[in-house]
Nucleic acid binder design. Structure first.
Lengths: 265, 265
DNA sequence: CGCGAGCTTGATGCCGATCAATGCATGTGG
DNA sequence: CCACATGCATTGATCGGCATCAAGCTCGCG
């Protein structure tokens, strides 16, 4: 599944990564006047959402490091020591549980502005794997320093709690989906959710390119890849979507919503 | 489902509750020398876990209020303003999503020492319902004050983050269960988990009394109540459990574990 | 061009949902 | 005390949706 062929720099990256999960990063600030978050394209959907100029200035040094993760490489793996959270700057990730000898369970997909790694706080070790589904870049947020700074920055503290809470709410929604929705409904909810998140980032919510395989979608939705494929075909027949491999166009957004929320009618 | 017959004090309770979610509480500390958390039976599995005497003294006034919730009554409901977290002191709760006109999805069961309400932080409104499954008492932890205090108490801050992270990890485990386990495996995992938590609280992990109905178990596990019943019968036939109504005895703990973690072999 | 990974589509079978009846414990009123 | 109602649990029969097994298909790429 995950490509094992080393890219030119992947061995070094991985070694550094295994060392402490935070190395292999490039300091930013080529000029001392630049404020990274302030100029970041996804600031409005990321951790420093709502920060004033002053808060931004204080928060900025915390995320002064970045890390590049190429397609199919791991940002972190289950069992590794937890030292930092990661905010996606560019690219796309999947998080998954990989019980040994069992099939993987994808627990989420993360796009620009979203933060990964909260599962590691409890035990000080990561409990999920995070893989890049395309060449990506993340901001490294050292957790110990984040804790310290958030004691002095109520706005940061609030935002951190909000994001963790949102993750819990999101997980509940997935439980509802897995526990009581049928295949087509699950897929519709999935596509509708992706579209919403893309729209919030200024992209089209009607023409999307999937970054993940049918198998990964299936793992997330508790379905086999064949069932995902059939559900796509059916939504296409019904004039809701147009599907061509990984290119999906939403034809009838209202219908999509209706299918995705069958219990809310 | 939920008993609508008002108990002697339930109307008052509910009115106060609707008003701000924190009222209807009794100040504790009948004597100024008592420290509530220090003398609490479940301190070792609750929020102030690991606090020294000094931290305990500072944390204590924060949870100076309690609230009694009788069987079938709501601690809070989806949509109500979020103002506090609640730590279970005695009793047993279920949390659930109740999409209007749809079937409910139970998202978790909480016993003594466990904290409810994190889902409300993100939107400042509760997104789940919490119902007492037996007469219960909770400690009210006003959230705004908790935020403030945790800025001054690194140990509290850490513990709060740990608990939220643990909830995320737990939710991931439920996703794995819902996404890829079969009925018997789900039920075995559920019983094994309950037993573990009871054992951590000093109760027997082999003789347990279920506080919830088959339907609620089914909702949590993504199964119909008949399937839960059949799975119980099968586990009994196989000599793993003994089941008599809500009384469950674990006969073969090793087998239970084996069934509950089919992917880890 | 030909290979292979990923996707689609078809045929079949199984697990759990659904429908339905019975059992069991508790409570209530005559 | 019994007759009856009620809520929950068990068990059986049948049905349906998704998994499984098995071909083909598409597209990108060496």
């Amino acid at each position: 599944m995950v490509n094992g062929v080393p890219f030119p720099c992947s061995i070094l990256e991985q070694a550094a990564h295994l060392a402490d999960g935070v190395d292999n990063v490039v300091p930013i600030h080529p000029s001392p006047f630049k404020v990274a978050c302030a100029s970041c394209a996804v600031r409005e959907v990321c951790l420093p959402l709502g920060f004033g100029a002053d808060d931004l200035r204080r928060f900025d040094p915390l995320v002064a490091r970045r890390r590049t993760v190429r397609r199919f490489e791991a940002l972190y793996r289950s069992g590794e020591p937890f030292r930092a959270l990661f905010a996606v700057r560019t690219g796309f990730f999947k998080s998954s549980l990989a019980p040994k000898c069992g099939r993987e369970q994808v627990t989420g997909f993360q796009m620009a502005g979203e933060v990964l790694g909260f599962d590691g706080i409890a035990s000080e070790r990561h409990t999920t794997d995070a893989y890049a589904l395309e060449d990506s870049q993340v901001c490294v947020i050292p957790y110990f320093e984040l804790e310290t700074l958030s004691r002095d920055m109520p706005e940061l503290q609030r935002q951190l709690h909000r994001i963790m809470s949102r993750e819990i709410v999101r997980d509940h929604a997935v439980m509802l989906l897995l526990g009581s929705m049928r295949a087509e409904e699950r897929l519709a909810a999935f596509i509708a959710n992706l579209a919403d998140r893309l729209r919030a980032r200024g992209f089209s919510g009607s023409r999307l390119v999937l970054r993940m395989t049918r198998e990964e979608i299936g793992s997330y939705l508790g379905l086999k890849l064949e069932t995902v494929s059939r559900a796509f075909s059916r939504l296409q027949e019904d004039g809701v979507l147009e599907v061509r491999q990984r290119h999906v166009t939403v034809i009838d957004a209202a219908a999509l919503e209706r299918i995705a929320h069958p219990l809310a009618n």
